[in-house]
Design a protein around this nucleic acid. Sequence first.
DNA 1: GTCCATGTTCTTTA
DNA 2: CTAAAGAACATGGA
Length: 275
Amino acid sequence: MPELPEVQTVVSTLQRSVRGLRIAAAKLLRSDVLEPAGFGLEAALVGRGIAEVQRRGKKIVIELDDGNRVAIHLGMSGRLTVEKPEEPVKKHTHFILELVEKSGGKSGAKQVRFVDPRRFGGIFWLGTETAADENLGPEPLTLKPAQLARGLAKTSRAIKTALLDQKLIAGIGNIYADEALFAAGIDPRVPANKLGGEQIAKLNRGIKRVLRRAINHRGSTLRDYRDADGEPGNYQKLHLVYGREGEACAVCGEPIQRIVLGGRSTHFCGRCQKR
DNA sequence: GTCCATGTTCTTTA
DNA sequence: CTAAAGAACATGGA
């Protein structure tokens, strides 16, 4: 469920509560969520401080005070939440980090817990060498139109499908692809390499506008998504096409259509979005 | 029971 | 060989 705005919100809430803390314990409750398989994750983490928490595409990157990094991908149903150690451990909890103040104080211990029922997500040990970047295209919030144009020119897939390709642009998923195409007034079925320069510029602005607004509203909660404090997002209320099949388009009143593109449901307004 | 789901990767097809 | 299309992964909710 988490796309760039949701992951960014988790990272922001996490930064506030765990940056600078020391890892007192680490428990991997389900080893198959870890890559590389069999890596000594717990030993590598215990005793280290958390230097920084960052986002790259849809990945959460935790940087330790020794320069090593671990990435967490939430997949479709994953959550990374901060909880008190005495809180009951939820079903499908695969990993727990126990954190304490660096200056000894045993009070105020907290845990970061990774819960992921569907297990499409995972934990990736990056060490100091592996780039968090691997297989990821540019960040959409700082993307330049010429960069976007270069990526889109390389493929004849429908623009909607191309936007979901993380190697082309990192962080956009099914919700924001539909919303960005509506914002830009572009038909999701148009082949990516058939878009004109003006349309690409419009799309680039649409992507940024939609993602920024979604971040301001703390992401979209459809079912599973929560930030690190357990709070849902609000942007789902402002979706103009996603999940609104049959409802009147907010701009022209035409019913929103739903089709399937690249195996994913796709929502758009047949009147506002042109080829 | 059926269908669908905020994602990615592997396999098959053209 | 390569790009695109399709299937698969695992769980739960409607």
